[in-house]
């Protein structure tokens, strides 16, 4: 797992809450900072990359560990 500035655990929450909470967390972060997002919603495998692409917040890392999805998202320049 690479370096991150903030962690957000959305375990147990279903679509679309992980995306909505990720957006809120990123909006409070500075450009270049990294968010560690933990998700159990299996749809996140498709949804988080789509969110990252559409909002210009690059997805640095995506891994699966013990049934949870871990994403590192960098706050983009908008």
């Amino acid at each position: 797992m690479s370096y991150f500035d903030k962690e957000l655990d959305t375990s147990g929450l279903n679509c679309p809450l992980p995306v909505l909470k990720a957006r809120k967390a990123l909006s409070e972060m500075a450009i270049g900072e990294k968010l560690h997002l933990i998700v159990t919603d299996p749809g996140a495998n498709q949804d988080i990359p789509a969110f990252s692409k559409m909002t210009g917040n690059p997805l640095i890392e995506a891994t699966e560990k013990e049934g949870k999805l871990h994403f590192i998202i960098e706050k983009g320049a908008e």
């Binding site: 679509c15 679309p16 995306v19 909505l20 990720a22 957006r23 789509a50 969110f51 559409m54 909002t55």
Partner: peptide, 11 residues
């Protein structure tokens, strides 16, 4: 409401 809130999150 689900699509609207997500769409806002996507800009």
């Amino acid at each position: 409401f689900l699509l609207a809130s997500t769409a806002v999150a996507l800009g």
